[in-house]
Design a protein around this nucleic acid. Structure first.
Length: 577
RNA sequence: CGGGGCGUAGCGCAGCUUGGUAGCGCGCCUGCCUUGGGCGCAGGAGGUCCCGGGUUCAAAUCCCGGCGCCCCGACCA
């Protein structure tokens, strides 16, 4: 391939819209262009890199025994309505209505698939009858559509993106776990092959969210620009998404025995911190924080230790609510009879009360009296408060003890590249994906689902592998293995040798681009560094006079002068490694 | 959707406070020159100043209303 015959619009300056390194570099190196917010064109180099990731994914999925299919992106709305999560799913889904505004096409309304549990499960429901047909694991690499509330960071969170999604169907839970484990191993290999080393890839415990199901893990790449936070142990192997992470807390000393409840005036006190100051001097870890939430339009109280932050994902998991929000001031007053700052759950009835585990067994606590300007002390949580449900509701903090070994936890931002779930029978029961066992008994299939953001993975590679000059592609996903930088384009000898080099490499199966543009050397070097080809070969009169061509590695800066034939040999070796 | 910022040539920006001439760098085109880290010189093309309305003799600039983009939060591959 000749540079002049493809399309690589590099930019010297960074477009103002880009914030994070990968977004800036994908734009500057000419891999992507924006059509609209969260909607991108993959230019030739971007497409090539994306296809490299796809190829790795495909090879590893096939190796793991998954079967490739391609499901439609256009889905009947009716199918989704029959599924188990329509209420939660519809707000991220695009509807595909006739563009002329006419009502409904014959055959019913259509939506664009944000993921495909419903579609694959209905296929399996139609086609799979016997235990002899199982297990099966179907996957596809396909464009997904999500009405992201806030697209962000270029390809990191887009409304339209390429995803690999896989769905396993098994006889029972035990077999489903085997399928899950096979996928986990495949994912590990996929991301390693994309260039991520042990320090750059973490498989973490995660919340299952609206997917539902037993448990899930995410594949995370630590990066400042990541949208997730993970907590990990410095000593042992414990790693979890902050939405799931736990920690071992020191026991609190509450005194000899629970005392009696006593109301006391606290004029002007509005916050936890106010109460810690003179004249009150109530430590934050001795206070109960009372929060009011509206869960699926019904109020609920959430109780936390005064110094603990609520984790809303954990709250969602505990309540099972699809939509929830903090209550507004007027709702709080009408419900509690006091303003935020003086709220408490003591004696409250007729409203669900969710309490964080850290409050279990605590006494001699202080909380609001539900009367502005008053608090109560001597509260014994289990004696005085009618807790509906105990749950882990707090976010762990950096430095807290690891739940497994007690060493301090650290917290780091990370990019989620893949997510694997054990789903159970949530979809198969609702959509009737059942099989007959050897005794003629009917059972729902036990499912798992497994996703990889393909375009996001490409962006994450750029996010991790770059320097001030540009991208540093790992060989496995680079759009081209090698760039031949031809200098002295008008001179016969360099041009001829560059062309021969190019042809020899291509014959050897190396992906090579020949920079044949009539530009100055510095300009071409800058472009090659920016795009980030793992190997650059410089061919010019100067190098030829010294006896060969110059081979330079982008990752290390290592440079060698070699005769053309040896250069070919060396490049083939490295490209195939 | 809540909060913040921005919208002027392909890209990066100035001009706006205090209304009157739309400007700079890069890129692009032509010619000369040059060829090992985004050369040099000369000439040139390119703008509904996001859109609509208003104020005014006059609006990029002031006012009102939209739209778009980016960032922080809730969602997620």
């Amino acid at each position: 391939m000749k540079w002049s015959q493809t399309f690589i619009p590099t930019l010297k300056e960074t477009p103002a819209e880009a914030e994070i390194p990968s977004h800036k570099l994908l734009l500057r190196a000419g891999l992507i262009r924006k059509l609209a917010g969260g909607i991108y064109t993959l230019l030739p180099l971007g497409l090539r890199a994306c296809e490299k990731v796809e190829r790795i994914v495909r090879e590893e999925m096939n190796r793991a025994g998954a079967i490739e299919v391609r499901m439609p992106a256009l889905n009947p709305r009716e199918l989704w309505q029959r599924g188990p999560r329509w209420d939660a799913a519809q707000r991220v889904m695009f509807a595909a209505s006739p563009a002329d505004g006419s009502k409904v096409a014959p055959g019913g309304e259509l939506v664009l698939g944000p993921t495909h549990e419903e579609v694959i499960t209905s296929l399996v429901a139609d086609e799979i009858r016997s235990y002899r047909d199982l297990p099966k694991n179907f996957y596809q690499i396909q464009t997904k559509f999500r009405n992201e509330i806030r697209p962000r960071f270029g390809l990191m969170r887009a409304k339209e993106f390429v995803m690999k999604d896989a769905y396993s169907f098994d006889l029972n839970e035990e077999a489903a776990v085997r399928s899950y484990e096979a996928m986990r191993a495949a994912y590990q290999r996929i991301f390693e092959r994309c260039g991520f080393g042990p320090q750059q890839l973490k498989c973490v415990w995660a919340d299952s969210g609206v997917m539902g199901g037993k448990y899930s893990q995410e594949f995370m790449v630590p990066a400042e620009s990541g949208e997730n936070e993970i907590a990990f142990c410095e000593k042992c192997s414990y790693v979890a998404n902050i939405e799931k992470a736990q920690s071992r807390l020191a026991r609190m000393e509450d005194g000899e025995a629970p005392g009696h409840i006593e109301k006391f005036p606290t004029p002007g006190v509005k916050t936890i911190e106010d109460l810690t100051k003179p004249p009150f001097l109530v430590a934050a870890d001795r206070q109960i924080k009372t929060l009011v939430f509206i869960c699926d339009s019904k109020p609920a109280l959430v109780l936390m230790r005064g110094d603990h932050p609520l984790n809303e994902v954990k709250l969602a998991a505990a309540t099972g609510a699809i939509e929830f929000r903090p209550a507004r001031d007027e709702e709080i007053v009408s419900l509690m009879g006091a303003h935020a700052g003086s709220l408490g759950a003591v004696g409250k009835k007729g409203i669900p009360i969710y309490a964080d585990e850290a409050l279990r067994g605590r006494f001699n606590m202080v909380t609001g009296a539900n009367e502005d300007g008053f608090h109560v002390r001597g509260v014994c949580v289990e004696r005085d408060i009618a807790v509906t449900k105990w749950a882990d509701l707090r976010s762990v903090g950096a430095g807290e003890p690891c739940p497994e070994c007690g060493a301090p936890l650290r917290i780091q931002r990370a990019i989620e590249l893949g997510h694997i779930f054990i789903l159970g029978t949530k979809y198969s029961e609702k959509l009737n994906a059942r099989y007959l066992d050897e005794k003629g008994q009917t059972h729902p299939c036990v499912m798992g689902c497994y996703g990889i953001g393909v375009t996001r993975t490409m962006a994450a590679v750029v996010e991790v592998f770059n320097d001030k000059d540009g991208i540093k592609w790992p060989m496995s996903v680079a759009p081209f293995h090698v760039c031949i930088t031809l200098l002295d384009t008008h001179k016969e000898a360099p041009a001829k040798i560059a062309q021969e080099l190019h042809d020899a490499l291509e014959r050897a199966g190396v992906e090579v681009i020949l920079d044949d543009r009539d530009e100055r050397p510095g300009f071409k070097f800058k472009d090659a560094d920016l795009v980030g080809f793992p190997i650059r070969v410089t061919v010019g009169e100067k190098s030829l006079a010294k006896g060969g061509v110059e081979l330079k590695l982008r990752a290390t800066g290592e440079m060698r002068l070699l005769p053309p034939a040896e250069a070919v040999e060396e490049i083939v070796k490295r490209a195939k490694a």
